[in-house]
Design a protein around this nucleic acid. Structure first.
Lengths: 135, 135
DNA sequence: GTCACGATTAGACTCAGTCCAGATCATGGT
DNA sequence: ACCATGATCTGGACTGAGTCTAATCGTGAC
């Protein structure tokens, strides 16, 4: 996923986000790799060369991106949240041993036999996590 | 689920767990309610009347129970892990607003179209989380 | 009794994530 | 250019879940 910074600025604007330096860099970290990253990892990547962005800003920005549906959060590891630049409907393989995450395209995946929702409830989303082990 | 302490002692023994006072109380907290509890909640319940059990023991014991497959862990809330006395295959409704968790019996639920596992991988389990909102 | 060993404990510690109050930046008006 | 304003960013203190450690306790074997 080769994103230019200009494209990311557009993307941010489209989601009603004021494209500041820090926000662009954080978006770049996530989108250019297309990987699942923890807040820690984002912080490390963004500050790789010279320290540019504070911890607080990384968290603020990730939560802003979440709110504006620019990224998704993936909760599989009891220790940390992962942030996912892929907002298309999809599911995940999770390697319990290594902590690795891999996408599963939701197209073609079907779930049958779920009971009806409790009264007055609305589905927000269905997440499928396939936990796998090496060996 | 009305479990007597004697039944729980049996249950613990069957899973190769030395049934100490604390372990029985923790098992009782989980099994007698049949609810999803966080470590915090377990600690509070067990120490409701007189302080009987330390934080360290609660965590040690919950992890021991996990290892011995007496309980399962449910990871849906970014803040805390929930422990589930139900070890039968099942899935979950998760109310994003209230944090409430409800079981979905896995019997009858089918998933189709998952891609084959990466080479040399073994499925550990498939978790489905239906995120719902009130209203 | 005492020795050994597993279980429990208080409290210090770690680490992800939040909060806060001050500094900095961008923008628009004059 | 200058200032005012609001939005953003920042370091550092803080919180809360979970872990670690070293000391103590309980129980059974001898």
């Amino acid at each position: 996923m080769p994103y230019t910074r200009d494209q990311l600025v557009e993307q941010l604007r489209r989601h009603d986000i004021n494209p500041t330096h820090q926000r662009i860099e954080i978006a770049f970290a996530l989108y250019s790799r297309g990987e699942h990253l923890s807040a820690d990892q984002v912080l490390a990547i963004v500050n790789d060369r010279h320290s540019e962005t504070s911890k607080a800003t990384v968290y603020n920005t990730l939560n802003l991106f979440l709110e504006k549906k620019l990224i998704r959060e993936v909760i599989v590891d009891p220790n940390k949240v992962f942030y996912d630049p892929n907002t298309e409907p999809h599911h995940h393989f999770y390697n319990v041993d290594t902590g690795e995450l891999a996408d599963i395209d939701a197209a073609g995946v079907e779930v049958h036999g779920l009971p009806p929702l409790p009264d007055g409830m609305v589905t927000e989303g269905v997440d499928i996590i396939v936990r796998v082990r090496s060996r």
